[in-house]
Design a protein around this nucleic acid. Structure first.
Lengths: 155, 155
DNA sequence: GGTGTTTAATTGCAAGTGCAAATATATGTG
DNA sequence: CACATATATTTGCACTTGCAATTAAACACC
């Protein structure tokens, strides 16, 4: 377990667990809902306020059946609504409400401060390397998910 | 959301979710238990086969009450045992069994292949930067956890 | 030596998650 | 058109997690 990739993986996992734990704690301490809610609200906002449930699930990286239930909770809080679409009535949009937009804005300062605090030990250049490298990894994983998971193991 | 730290954070979260999902899928496809089991077994092995339950929880980054239940499952599978200690009978050791050691060894090749596959897009130098940076972050978080969580928000 | 405080581990219960099946609708083919 | 097949979302059920409370043993100190 001496090699760079393996050590990087181990640091990746360990740091993620600790970092998430702290960020969630900060949000909770500020009386805010979990991080996941923020992600959903943000993705909706980015998409202009409405997004197919499946797309949302893919972007937030949550299994579709869990997205259903996550949306149930947000909807119960009035942060978003659902709209069945007319053209294909199997599908539905999640639609951001004004309240949802407001909550997202309220959460951001707390979230941002937590991120900056947690990642404070990184230099700007490290942060950039991290971003680029991990984005490349994620892009490949996303592609593999699309082309069928088997194709991924291939090359 | 243009700044390096924030983009790095976002890549960090997104990549973690996708990467973990794939690694877990690979383990399951090979008929192996979840990643978490591996971590427990590995930490025990590293510690020479026995570790206080609280220490184990800290190393694996799991809340103590969840460690209790995680150990219940591993114990039910014969992968480890518990030993109440004589000097302080509140505390207990988790003790690796031969079967536990064997399982860990069996899991490793599958796990390693998955890691290498997922992190394949990283150059060695990126991997090293990642490892160093994230380890520094984790070290600070660990320290803050020890010194009481309030101290962390301080500086 | 008894009383109050701290610590390690566990547990009850409510909430969240994974998996496999169900529902409802669309699409393709003979 | 009828029928098998595919897609988007949801649901039932078992398992896992988070939180607050519990148990059990040590310490502290008067």
């Amino acid at each position: 377990m001496a090699e760079a990739v393996l050590k990087a993986w181990s640091a990746f996992l360990g740091t993620h667990a600790r970092a998430l734990r702290r960020v969630e704690a900060r949000l909770k301490a500020a009386g805010m809902p979990p991080l996941e809610w923020y992600d959903v609200l943000l993705e909706l906002e980015r998409a202009g306020g409405r997004l197919r449930i499946g797309d949302l699930a893919e972007r937030v990286v949550v299994a579709p059946y869990n997205m259903t239930r996550l949306l149930d909770r947000l909807e119960a809080d009035g942060l978003l609504g659902r709209e069945r679409l007319a053209t294909d009535r199997r599908g539905a949009f999640a639609v951001l409400t004004a309240k949802g937009g407001r909550l997202r804005k309220e959460m951001w300062p707390v979230y941002e401060a937590a991120i900056r605090d947690v990642f404070a030990p990184l230099t700007a250049s490290e942060a950039q390397t991290l971003e680029r490298g991990l984005d490349r990894v994620a892009a490949r994983l996303r592609a593999a998910d699309r082309d069928g998971p088997e194709a991924a193991a291939a090359d």
